[in-house]
Nucleic acid binder design. Structure first.
Lengths: 242, 242
DNA sequence: ATAAACTATTACGTAACGTTAGAGTCAAGT
DNA sequence: ACTTGACTCTAACGTTACGTAATAGTTTAT
């Protein structure tokens, strides 16, 4: 567990920025000490890294949050988009470079060409990426439902879900396709639908991938149900959804 | 002469931005209609282009203004720095690209490497470039002296200087090295020193280059003293300074 | 035990515009 | 001459992503 100071040193972002990201819910510390000091672990650092990547592409922090917290968020796909966007940006800078070189040689840009400053392509792609994640109906519903909740409510919901995963953990000796396990998957789906957003099979399948892929979710689930629970749940979910 | 709408269309910056740039004195329209409409000509567009280039490199507008309006501003040298900075930026994005690709392949960035987000090199170079232009003693003195002046005062000073250039224009049949012309150079230098900033020979020489190079200054000077005055004055100045 | 170094929470400041709001202008059509 | 629609102007407040104190509690090191 690291303090703000250490995270700041490693990542290069200011302490104030970390505090701010906490306040807007973009990057919550993994824990707090009794006296309120922020404590971060590796999964928080991972999240921070993702945030910084999006930030480099000039996404508003609100959108970054929406995207990362989006119910069906797929890190791999997002990274692909990031790569694409970075490539577009490189192109953009090459154009600027050419413009600067041109002006330097000829003295003036006679053609009064401003196309080098044009970011339409980048903006459009960014808008589209944004839509893919944060603008889904599922996310809107999720936001709607979370509005009327206290932080206590949220803690309870998190506890409930973790309990479901703990139960999954106790079923790892059974087959993922067995009736009992499948019933447990349905329980998860129903709980999400009731308390968060309409969890379709498609979204559920996406969630499953996130459960088994290394990262924040996988760590938390394995903590609740024991090593390998994330992968186990994913298998069960994929069977359920097919 | 173009209206805000047209400039906005050509350059891609918003009308509000043009109004804002006017208000902070970064980009003044070439003229106003009787009813107060802003009118821009080609030299304004040139200046806008330069502004946008600096803006792409994330210079604060205040610094951009200081730089462009700096007494010894050398467009060529600035462009060279811009090019250098753009190249650094490209490098930066390549690092980010590699990071994104890495995360995508391995799933997680185990090394928790944040060096890709490090912009120290770029920042340092930018700071140095800033120092080269806007942080000179001459510019500070210039700002100090301009503080207590009304816009009327400024108009008068501009008129005085243009008169000096008109006088230069009438001397184009003489040699740039002749006594009369050299005396006129000294007159210019003295006027600038008294009313604006301590105009050393070095600065004067830099100004000379700006007078003969195509751009805003050259256009204005040729308007005052006739075609070729800018180049003529530059020649005289370079002789004076050597 | 006491300084030195951290950290927390307000809270106000800043940069570069976006966004109305309210009102005057201009060119075209009737 | 008059209306209409497209432009433009000047305030003036809103916004984002923090920076920068100010004040107060906390932890570590001697």
């Amino acid at each position: 567990m690291m303090t703000v100071h250490e995270v700041s040193n490693i990542s290069g972002v200011s302490i104030r920025t970390l505090q701010y990201y906490d306040s807007i819910g973009l990057l919550k510390p993994s824990d707090y000490t009794e006296s309120g000091y922020r404590l971060y672990d590796d999964t928080a650092l991972e999240r921070l890294q993702l945030i910084l990547l999006f930030r480099e592409l000039e996404f508003p922090l609100k959108d970054i949050r929406r995207m990362i917290d989006s119910p069906g968020f797929d890190k791999d796909k997002a990274l692909e988009q990031q790569i694409e966007l970075l490539e577009l940006k490189m192109e953009h800078f090459e154009n600027l470079l050419n413009l600067a070189r041109g002006i330097k040689q000829i003295g003036v840009n006679k053609a009064m060409d401003f196309t080098a400053f044009d970011t339409k392509k980048i903006d459009e792609y960014a808008a589209q990426a944004k839509k893919t994640w944060g603008d889904t109906d599922a996310y809107k519903e999720y936001e709607e439902k979370s509005k009327g909740r206290t932080s206590e409510d949220n803690a309870n919901i998190a506890k409930d879900i973790m309990k479901i995963f703990t139960e999954f953990g106790g079923m790892k000796d059974q087959e993922p396709g067995s009736e009992a396990v499948q019933k447990q998957v349905k329980k998860l789906q129903d709980y999400i639908t009731e308390n968060m957003y309409n969890c379709t099979k498609e979204i559920l399948s996406g969630l499953g991938h996130a459960y088994s892929a290394p990262g924040e979710m996988n760590t938390n689930i394995d903590n609740a149900g024991g090593e390998g629970t994330g992968e186990f749940v994913d298998k069960a979910i994929q069977i359920y959804c097919s």
